[in-house]
């Protein structure tokens, strides 16, 4: 009896995978390659598609850098609970998990838009946030910051602070302690957080759509390109860029599984 349950249990899992991952993935790939490699390649390497893919790459890259420099101190701030304001920081970091990306994008327009006070102020020093690259990065950072913080806070708490104190007594400055004691031990959590960030940045749509205005060859990312192409019934182009994004996600998932296994092993060692 239990064997039947087990078999049907895994059958359901596989069916689920097939229905929601396998079939759509294959459909996108076949759609992209329906006319063979040449049209696929032409679509992906068209000026507009290349620009969109590069834009997504650039936003992701900058977001990763910003998240790393902001996320690590924030994670310490929250994990330590000694510096006042940590509750506020935690609240701000967790907000995006509850807020719709479109709302987040709109909020950025309200604050940084050309008709808003801050937006106009920044424009006088020639910094354009809304409908421009900075705004898109800002939206992506806002939405992805929780990942790195969420991954590292438990790790920081598990390690505690006696190793840090040991390093201080042995003559290491706080900065050196971060490099020699903290980062090597937070490595796997950070990488996992960064992988999640990358995945989210690749796929981000709503917030970026609102904040960028989706201007072709100016603020159009890969997901915006796919949307625009499908709306314009340029299905070949939509499939081609989708397939590229899907492949990137596939490799990311494989990388994350690897990180989880290796990181999990090194954590168990503790």
């Amino acid at each position: 009896m239990s064997r039947i349950w087990r078999i049907s249990g895994s059958a359901i899992t596989y069916l689920w995978l097939l229905a929601f991952v396998g079939i759509p993935f294959v459909a996108v790939l076949t759609g992209a390659l329906a006319g063979g490699w040449r049209p696929f390649w032409q679509c992906v390497t068209s000026q507009e598609a290349l620009f969109a893919l590069r834009m997504t790459g650039e936003i992701t890259g900058v977001t990763l850098l910003v998240n790393l420099t902001l996320g690590v101190p924030m994670a310490f701030w929250i994990a330590r609970k000694t510096v006042p304001g940590w509750r506020m920081v935690q609240w701000i970091v967790e907000l995006p998990l509850a807020v719709s990306p479109v709302v987040a994008g709109l909020a950025l327009i309200v604050v940084y838009g050309p008709n808003a006070l801050l937006g106009r102020l920044l424009e006088t020093v020639h910094i354009k946030v809304a409908f421009a690259f900075p705004g898109m990065v800002l939206a992506t950072v806002f939405l992805t910051l929780p990942f790195i913080v969420h991954e590292t806070v438990p790790a920081i708490r598990a390690i505690g602070n006696t190793q840090e104190q040991a390093a201080y007594v042995l003559g290491a400055s706080p900065w050196r302690t971060l490099w020699r004691v903290w980062l090597p031990q937070l490595k796997w959590s950070l990488l996992y957080g960064l992988a999640l960030t990358t995945a989210r940045s690749f796929g981000e749509f709503g917030a970026v759509l609102v904040v960028s205005g989706s201007i072709v060859m100016v603020t159009e990312t890969a997901t915006l390109f796919v949307y625009q192409a499908s709306v314009n019934s340029e299905l070949q182009a939509a499939y081609a860029v989708s397939a590229t994004l899907a492949l990137a996600s596939f490799f990311l998932i494989v990388a994350m599984q690897f990180l989880k296994r290796v990181g999990g092993r090194s954590l168990r060692g503790h």
Partner: peptide, 30 residues
Amino acid sequence: LPPQQRNVGLVFQNYALFQHMTVYDNISFG
């Protein structure tokens, strides 16, 4: 004076060894 400048050795209750370092690297840290 901060702890870094006191030239004091401390053995912690739970040792506080650096978990990601070998015995050799732990001893050579200071």
